[in-house]
C-alpha cells in the first residue's frame, strides 16, 4: 500500500490527476486496447476532474480510448436532477472532454429491473476486461461508494438501502426536505472495486482523518469498508495534511519519507506540455 501525503487539497487533486494522466498515457490505449477507469462522485474528486480537463484541453491527454465505470447512482432520481450522479459526471467531467458516450457506463437508477441493471453492470465490466484503475473517495464513516458500515466486503454491484445517517446528511442537497432524499441507491460492491487491478483513494480534510486512521492503521473491518483495500495488491491513498491528523507520527513520517519515490510516479511524460516547458527552462 502506498500513502501519498500532500500539503493541501489542491496539491492532492493535482497529484491524483497527474497520476491518472501518467497511467493512461503509459498504457498507450487504442482502438484495440481501451483503458478502463472506475470513477467516483462527490466533492473530493472535483479538483482532480478539473485538472484532468486541463490536461485534455492542453492536448496532453485524450479520453477517446478510455472506458469509464461509475461507482453508484441514486434509485428513482430523475437522470437530469441536479443531484443525480449523471448530472454530476456530465457537468464536472464528461461534457468537457472527448470521451465517446458509448464508452461511459453509469448505473441507471430508473431501470425497470434494478437487479438486472446491477448484474449487467458487472457483465459490462467483465466484457471490458476488468478495471485498470478504480478511483474512489470515502465518507467520514469510511464507506466506499454506497458500501456503508456493515456492508459485505465481498459484495458485488447491487441495490442498497441507504443508512439513515446518509439520508439525513444528503437532505442538504434537497432543500433540507428529507422526504425528497432518495432512500436507495445502486452501487458497486467492495469486491467490484477490489477486483480492479489498481485502486486509488483520495481522502482530504480533517473530518475524514478518523476514517483514514481506520482505513490504514487498524485491521480490516466491514464497519470501515475502505479498510478492505489493505488486502489489495496495489492500492494508493492520496491524502492532504488534514486527513492525517489521526495517524501516528510514525506512520506519517514513514510515508513522507517515501515522497521522493512517489513523486517519480507523477513526473511529466515525454509527450506532455509540462515536460516541454521543463526542457525549455
Amino acid at each position: 500500500m502506498r500513502l501519498v501525503i500532500l500539503d493541501s487539497y489542491c496539491d492532492a487533486s493535482t497529484w491524483a490527476a497527474k497520476y491518472v494522466r501518467n497511467r493512461i498515457l503509459s498504457f498507450n490505449p487504442g482502438p484495440e486496447k481501451y483503458f478502463t477507469l472506475g470513477l467516483p462522485t462527490g466533492s473530493t474528486p472535483l479538483g482532480m476532474y478539473k485538472k484532468l480537463i486541463e490536461f485534455y484541453k492542453g492536448g496532453d491527454l485524450s479520453f477517446k480510448y478510455v472506458k469509464t465505470f461509475n461507482m453508484d447512482e441514486y434509485v428513482g432520481l430523475p437522470r437530469d436532477h441536479a443531484e443525480s450522479y449523471h448530472t454530476y459526471m456530465w457537468d464536472n467531467f464528461f461534457k468537457h472532454i472527448d470521451i465517446i458516450p458509448e464508452n461511459v457506463n453509469l448505473l441507471d437508477g430508473n431501470a425497470d429491473d434494478l437487479v438486472a441493471e446491477c448484474d449487467s453492470f458487472e457483465d459490462r465490466i467483465a466484457a471490458a476486461g476488468g478495471i485498470e484503475l478504480f478511483i474512489g473517495g470515502i465518507g467520514p464513516d469510511g464507506h466506499i461508494a454506497f458500501n456503508e458500515p456493515g456492508s459485505s466486503l465481498v459484495s458485488k454491484t447491487r441495490v442498497k438501502t441507504l443508512a439513515q445517517d446518509t439520508i439525513e446528511a444528503n437532505a442538504r442537497f434537497f432543500n433540507g426536505d428529507i422526504s425528497k432524499v432518495p432512500t436507495m441507491a445502486l452501487t458497486v460492491g467492495v469486491k467490484t472495486v477490489m477486483d480492479a487491478r489498481e485502486v486509488m483513494i483520495i481522502i482530504t480534510g480533517a473530518h475524514k482523518a478518523f476514517a483514514l486512521y481506520k482505513a490504514i492503521e487498524e485491521g480490516v473491518s466491514h464497519m470501515w469498508t475502505v479498510s478492505a483495500f489493505q488486502q489489495h495488491p496495489k492500492t494508493i491513498f492520496i491524502a492532504d495534511e488534514d486527513a492525517t491528523l489521526e495517524l501516528r507520527v510514525k506512520t506519517v513520517k514513514y510515508f513522507k519519507g517515501l515522497m521522493h519515490v512517489h513523486n517519480k510516479l507523477v513526473e511529466p511524460l515525454e509527450s506532455t506540455q509540462e515536460k516541454k516547458k521543463q526542457k525549455m527552462n
Partner: peptide, 23 residues
C-alpha cells in the same frame, strides 16, 4: 456553456450523450 445544434435545432446535450450516445 457549449451549444449543440442539429438540423437548425438546439439539442439537449445530455439527451444526446446519455440516450443517443452521440456527440
Amino acid at each position: 456553456e457549449d451549444l449543440w445544434v442539429r438540423e437548425g435545432k438546439i439539442l439537449n446535450p445530455r439527451k444526446l450523450f446519455w440516450d443517443e450516445k452521440g456527440y
